[in-house]
């Protein structure tokens, strides 16, 4: 589904990632961890082709990212749901419109019943008409997750989804991600929260990847 082969990424003369090889199989659950500035967000951006590798090959859904034009990248992103650390929304539009954006840009109409179910699933049923700036941090994170999955994507990529949440809210979001994984979705979560990873491993057979000294390592044993 997503495969990295000896990928490197450099910027401004410095190499941030080096010799990264990775394969996300369908239905797998991966955590990506490492210290701040290690390159977790960069690796995620490489996963949805916002950045291109400076060396090596990345294959998304059997397509080499170097051969994709801008429209093809857009089409591939429709098969992915991305939850950003800073939860980017269109602040002038109500939550329901924000959640249905992926459907709208694909030329599809989101069913009202599906939208209601989705809002209920993330616990935001009462906030459908609210504007994003009116939501709390936790509500924004859950809304971002709802938007990420509305098109039933094959892969969900989450960058520090519990970054500013308290523990209860973090567990609630984790539960949603686990539910998605049980539905067959491939999940990759970048986080530095080891407690969250431990809690997840009690529910799903998650693999833990660590970025250390520019390289990606399997780091499940010490958690």
């Amino acid at each position: 589904m997503i495969a990295f082969e000896n990928v490197a990424y450099s910027y401004g003369g410095g190499e941030l990632l080096s010799e990264v090889s990775l394969r996300l199989a369908p239905g797998s659950f991966h955590f990506l961890t490492g210290p701040s500035g290690a390159g977790k967000s960069t690796l995620l951006k490489l996963c949805y082709a916002e950045l291109l590798p400076t060396a090596g090959h990345i294959t998304l859904f059997d397509r080499d990212v170097h051969g994709l034009d801008r429209d093809e990248v857009a089409m591939l992103r429709r098969r992915m749901g991305v939850v950003h650390q800073d939860c980017q929304f269109l602040d002038h539009l109500p939550l329901t419109t924000n959640l249905t954006l992926p459907a709208a840009v694909s030329g599809r109409q989101a069913e009202a019943a599906d939208l209601k179910d989705l809002l209920g699933w993330v616990g935001l049923s009462r906030l459908g008409d609210a504007l994003p700036p009116q939501l709390s941090g936790g509500e924004r994170q859950r809304a971002a997750l709802a938007r990420a999955v509305i098109m039933s994507p094959d892969v969900v990529l989450a960058d520090e989804p519990t970054g500013n949440l308290d523990w209860d809210m973090s567990l609630r979001l984790l539960t949603l991600l686990v539910e998605l994984n049980k539905m067959g979705k491939t999940i990759l979560v970048a986080t530095h929260d080891l407690n969250l990873i431990r809690a997840a491993k009690q529910q799903v057979p998650a693999r833990v990847l660590r970025i250390s000294k520019r390289r990606l390592q399997l780091a499940g044993a010490d958690l």
Partner: peptide, 16 residues
């Protein structure tokens, strides 16, 4: 630019 970034993130093509 923030609007454009969000739209690109959710799979909007340039034409849209």
């Amino acid at each position: 630019s923030q609007v454009i970034r969000v739209l690109r993130l959710v799979g909007a093509r340039d034409a849209y």
